[in-house]
Design a protein around this nucleic acid. Structure first.
Lengths: 335, 335
DNA sequence: ACTTAGCACTCAACATGCCCAAGTGCTAAC
DNA sequence: GTTAGCACTTGGGCATGTTGAGTGCTAAGT
C-alpha cells in the first residue's frame, strides 16, 4: 500500500468529518474524493490507519473519525494553509484600521477573529517589558490614599491605589513626583526593579518611607503592565457549533473564565509569528479542554493571539485566520 | 376555595419545581407540604391556577410548572426574603474587604456573587458623573499622537489616544496641560461639556486647534467615565445548571457578550437599593433571554449589580444575595 | 358551598422486538 | 497490490406494548 495514498485517505477523512460531523466510511470516501481506487482498498488502508492510532471507529459498524493523533499528523504534515478570501482580508484590513487605543484594537481584533473562525477568540495583552516609562503621576485621593499612575510610551496606562501608613502631604507628594519623574522617565519598565531602589535611597530621610511605598506601587504596576490579562470573544460560538454535538461546554467555559489557566495555556505554546501552534484535545494541559483544540501564535514581542474550539475544526482555515490576524496585530502595535 | 390556600399551592409548586426541576403533581404536593387537604382538592385549586395562567402542564398527564406569570406573582406577593447564612455573610465581608482598586473590588464582587448564587453575575461600573476631575495629563506618544489621561477623585482613570492633525510641540502641550489643569481640576466630570469650550476659547489662537482636539478627547473620556462597561463572571454556571435541562444557552451567551444589550437590560430595571428588581422570562426585552430571568438592583449612585439565570431559579435566596452584595458595594464605594 | 374518594382516561417514558442500512473484515481471484 | 463479493456486526428507526404518574369529573360526604 502506498504511503502517499494513506496520507491522502487520512486527509480525506479529516476533511469530510470536519465538514459533516459524521463518521466517514470507505464507500462515501471514494465517492466524494476521486482517489483512483475502490472502497475495498480504502478499507485496507483504513485498517492500517486505525492500527497506527490515527483514526478510530466509534462502534463496529460506523465510519471512522480522526483521533487526536490523527489531527496532529494532519496539521503537521498534510494540511496546507488555505489562503483567506478577499472578503476576509478586507475585513481584517478595515476593522483594524482605526488608529486607536491598544484596548480598542485588541477588543476589535478578538471580535473579528471570533467571527472569522466561528470559534472563541482569545488575545493576550501585549508584553510591554521593553516599553519605556513615559510619565508618572501621584494623585492624592484621600489623606492616606494615593493613586499611582504609570504611563508607558506605548500608550498603556497602569493605575493602582495604595495606602500610605499615615497622612500624606501634598507638597511631599509633588516633590517625590518630580524626583521619580526625573529619574525614571525613559527607562524600560523591565528595569524598574533595579532603578527604583536608588531613587528611594536618594530621597531625604523624612520622605523615604513614603517614597518606598510609592516605589513598591510603581514596581507592582510594571509587573502588571506586563499585562497578564486576556481578552476574549465569541463564547456563544461554543454553543452554536455543538448544537447537535455534545462537547461538554461547561468545563470549557470554566477554563475560559480562569485567566490563569488560559495564560498558562497560551504561554505553553510556541510564539513564532510565522507559523501557528496547535494544541489538540488531550494534548492540552488542562483536563476541561480534552475535547478542544487551541490554535495560537505570537505577535508583537511574545504575547499570544489564538482561538479555541472543538477538536473537530477546520484547521487550515482557522490557522490561516489566526496567522493573518497576528501579522496585522504585529504590524499595528509594532513588533 | 380559599384564596390564601391557592397562593400557598402556587408557592409550593414554585418551590418544589425549583428544587426538583420536574413538573409537580397534586399527590406529591400534599405529601411534601402539610397542607391540610387531599390531593383532589389540590387538583381543583390547580385547575383554577391554570385557568388564571399562573401554572401550566407540559403535557396532559404531567404535573404543573409555573409560568412566567406564576413566578411574577410568587416574587411579588408570596416569597419572603431568606436571610443569608452566616457563612455567606462572612464571605461577603471578607472578600470585599481589601481596600483596593475599583476594578479589583468589582472583579471580586462579581466573582463572589456568581459563587453565591450559582448564576452568571453582572456588575456595571459605577456612575461617576458626580466625580470631580482630579488630574489631567497629556503625554506625547508620537509626533502626532497624544495620550489624554483623565483622573477622577474616585480613583478611576480614563485614557484615550488621540490623533492631532499635525506634529505637536512638547512645550505647547505643557502649556495646554497647565491651562486645562488650572481650569478644570475640581469640576464635576458631568460639567465638562459646559466648561471645556471656555477653556479652549481662552487659549492663544495658535494653540486653539490643538486645544480643541484635546478638549474633545477629555469630553469623550468623561462620557466613557460614566463607564458604560460591565463585568461578569460565572458563565460556566449556565452550562452546569442546565446539565439535563435544555435552556438553550447559545442566545444567552450572545446576549452576555453584547455589552449594549446587557446595559440596556440593566438600565431598564429599577435601582432602588433597598429592593431588588426581577425581570422574568419573556418580560425581558431581549428575545434570547426568553427563558432567563434577571435579578438586579442599583448600588452607589445608580449603577447596577445583578445576576442572570434560568427562570427556574431560587428567587428568594438569589434576591437576598444580590441585595446584600449591592449594599456592601454601596458602602464600600460610597453611595 | 367545600371537600373528598373513586374511577376512567390520557400520555410521556420506557421497554421490546424487528428490520434495515451502513460499514467492516476477510477471502479468493485478478 | 487491488478488487469484487460476501458474511457479519451493530446502531438507529419504527411499530408495538406496558407502566405509572397525573388529570378531570362525578357522586357522595360534611
Amino acid at each position: 500500500m502506498s504511503e502517499p495514498r494513506k496520507l491522502e485517505v487520512l486527509r480525506a477523512i479529516v476533511e469530510d468529518y470536519v465538514h459533516s460531523r459524521e463518521p466517514v466510511g470507505s464507500k462515501a470516501l471514494v465517492e466524494r474524493h476521486h482517489l483512483g481506487v475502490s472502497s475495498a482498498t480504502i478499507r485496507n488502508d483504513m485498517a492500517v490507519l486505525e492500527e497506527e492510532g490515527l483514526i478510530a471507529a466509534p462502534h463496529t459498524s460506523a465510519g471512522r473519525i480522526p483521533t487526536d493523533k490523527g489531527y496532529r499528523l494532519f496539521v503537521d504534515r498534510i494540511s496546507q494553509v488555505k489562503p483567506l478570501s478577499a472578503a476576509e482580508r478586507r475585513a481584517i484590513h478595515s476593522l483594524l484600521e482605526g488608529p486607536d487605543d491598544v484596548d480598542d484594537i485588541l477588543e476589535r481584533t478578538v471580535r473579528l477573529l471570533s467571527q472569522l473562525t466561528n470559534q472563541v477568540a482569545v488575545v493576550q495583552y501585549p508584553h510591554s517589558n521593553r516599553a519605556l516609562v513615559r510619565h508618572v503621576e501621584f494623585v492624592l485621593l484621600a489623606p492616606q490614599q494615593v493613586l499611582v499612575v504609570l504611563i508607558a510610551d506605548t500608550g498603556s496606562v497602569g493605575q493602582k491605589v495604595i495606602e500610605a501608613g499615615s497622612a500624606v502631604g501634598d507638597e511631599a507628594l509633588m516633590q517625590l513626583r518630580s524626583r521619580f519623574l526625573g529619574s525614571i522617565t525613559g527607562t524600560q519598565l523591565a528595569l524598574l526593579p533595579q532603578v527604583l531602589p536608588s531613587v528611594v535611597a536618594l530621597c531625604p530621610p523624612e520622605l523615604r518611607g513614603l517614597a518606598q511605598t510609592l516605589a513598591n506601587g510603581l514596581q507592582a504596576l510594571s509587573d502588571t503592565s506586563r499585562e497578564e490579562r486576556i481578552l476574549m470573544a465569541g463564547t456563544a460560538n461554543l454553543a452554536r457549533s455543538n448544537v447537535d454535538f455534545p462537547l461538554s461546554i461547561g468545563p470549557v467555559l470554566e477554563a475560559l473564565e480562569e485567566q490563569v489557566v488560559m495564560l498558562r495555556l497560551l504561554s505553553d505554546m510556541g510564539d513564532d509569528p510565522r507559523g501557528v501552534t496547535v494544541s489538540i484535545g488531550r494534548e492540552n494541559p488542562y483536563d476541561g479542554l480534552a475535547e478542544a483544540s487551541v490554535v495560537a501564535t505570537g505577535y508583537g514581542s511574545g504575547a499570544k493571539v489564538g482561538i479555541l474550539g472543538p477538536t473537530r475544526m477546520d484547521y487550515p482555515t482557522t490557522m490561516a485566520a489566526v496567522r493573518a490576524v497576528a501579522r496585522y496585530l504585529s504590524r499595528i502595535l509594532g513588533g
